[in-house]
């Protein structure tokens, strides 16, 4: 594909370019950030890109709203189905965001932080403390015997 064709392609399909940029940046944020709230925001951007993808695929050049008007025969309609599907997807997205944020609130209460690396460090400290008490118990049992 020549550069010209690529530029041409991007100029006519810029909506898909936007979808790809949003999708990848959202996915990257959700994976790379250590802050639990930012991860959820990344997830939201990722989901928003899918909404854009569906909505733009339903749109037809020169298409109008799918309302039947008497006496106007040859009208090109935009496909409403993907738009309707996205209403459901938005609801699902809101629900998962709300649940995710609720979990973050509970995590903050339990750990006192929303940074993933600090939480991992706290968990590791817990593990080490547990192993130390176990070892001490075993030693005490050995000494008792």
């Amino acid at each position: 594909m020549t550069i010209e064709r690529l530029v041409d392609h991007l100029a006519t399909h810029w909506n898909y370019l936007a979808v790809i940029v949003l999708m990848m940046s959202g996915l990257y944020i959700a994976i790379s950030r250590g802050n639990l709230v930012k991860k959820i925001m990344g997830m939201n951007v990722f989901q928003a890109s899918v909404i854009l993808m569906y909505v733009s695929m339903g749109k037809i050049h020169g298409g109008t709203a799918p309302i039947l008007v008497e006496g106007v025969p040859d009208v090109v309609y935009t496909n409403p189905v993907p738009h309707v599907l996205m209403l459901t997807a938005i609801v699902v997205g809101v629900a998962s965001t709300a649940l995710g944020l609720a979990l973050v609130v509970r995590t903050k209460e339990a750990y006192g932080t929303v940074e993933e690396d600090e939480i991992v460090a706290l968990d590791r400290a817990d593990d080490e403390r547990e192993m130390a008490t176990e070892r001490a118990e075993r030693r005490a049992a050995g000494a008792g015997a």
């Binding site: 899918v50 979990l103 995590t107 339990a110 939480i119």
Partner: peptide, 22 residues
């Protein structure tokens, strides 16, 4: 309390998985 983080990471992974399916 680790259950919270387990649920959270499952939420992120699960939502990404479901969105991929979408």
């Amino acid at each position: 309390r680790r259950a919270l983080m387990a649920a959270y990471s499952y939420l992120i992974m699960g939502t990404i998985g479901a969105t991929f399916l979408l």
